[in-house]
């Protein structure tokens, strides 16, 4: 029943009060796939992403992780979330902990690892994002780009089945964006399954397997990067791409 998909979003609806943000969204993410989501702000792409680990509770529809519906009652969401990493626009590192402390917290408290084991694993993750030498730095001693890489390390240390990226470079100064994208690129090359909401079109062109264009709570168009960027079908997509590539 799982069709081998890591994530399956089925007819997802979400309303905030009277405002309908998602109007029936369907997405599948296969293993090792990088699905890239674009769209204007307010199109519902972040909400869709946040429904995938239930940071937002869907109004209706379902989200399947490896075929298991996580929106039904009785699901141990904390256990499920260890399989779904998330990287936030504003990093959300814990300011009272060092980089290694940030990465190790869930390993110790959720995966119940011993301190030494958790720290070994955290060091590995930090090395993976090229920041092991900053292990003992606090977030306020790191640049934005470094903070975001630590946040990625926090996600990959849990060895998740998929990582959700919610505009991971939007809060960064332009010269720091590259280092974060490079890490994401190398994760992709290692076969990590990823869903990325972002405006980095060049990265999408290079690294995405599929691109989804969302607008007003719906997926308007989907296809390979070439199909979306070079052979655009819908007027709304064309309009959006013209606007973001203008400058």
């Amino acid at each position: 029943m799982s069709n081998g998909n890591v994530v399956e979003v089925v007819d997802l609806h979400k309303s905030f009060g009277d405002l309908e943000v998602l109007k029936g969204v369907n997405v599948t993410v296969a293993p090792q796939e990088l699905v890239f989501v674009i769209g204007p702000s307010g199109s519902g792409k972040s909400t869709m992403l946040r429904c995938c680990n239930l940071l937002e509770q869907p109004t209706s529809g379902s989200v399947l992780i490896h075929g298991q519906d996580i929106t039904v009652a009785g699901v141990d969401i904390n256990r499920i979330r260890t399989h779904i990493g998330m990287v936030f626009q504003s990093f959300n590192l814990y300011p009272h902990m060092t980089a290694i402390g940030n990465v190790a917290l869930a390993l110790r408290k959720v995966k119940k690892m011993q301190r030494g084991e958790a720290e070994d694993r955290a060091h590995q993750a930090l090395r993976r994002v090229g920041l092991d030498e900053k292990a003992l730095s606090h977030p306020n001693e790191l640049s934005g780009g470094q903070q975001q890489r630590v946040a990625i390390a926090r996600a990959i240390a849990m060895e998740p089945d998929v990582i959700l990226f919610d505009e991971p470079t939007s809060a960064l100064d332009p010269e720091l964006v590259g280092s974060v994208l490079a890490v994401m690129h190398s994760l992709r090359d290692d076969g990590m399954t990823m869903v990325v909401v972002s405006h980095e079109m060049r990265f999408a062109q290079d690294a995405a397997d599929r691109v989804l264009f969302m607008d007003e709570g719906e997926i308007v168009e989907r296809g390979t990067p070439d199909e979306i960027f070079k052979n655009t079908q819908h007027a709304r997509t064309r309009e959006f791409l013209a606007r973001v590539t203008d400058h």
Binding site: L55, I84, M86, Y94, L105
Partner: peptide, 21 residues
């Protein structure tokens, strides 16, 4: 900040664990 709750919950920590750690 709300993001602190979200980051912690997204790694699988429960409400109480997030509150305390």
């Amino acid at each position: 900040h709300k993001g602190q709750w979200e980051a912690s919950r997204s790694t699988g920590l429960s409400f109480v664990e997030t509150l305390f750690y």
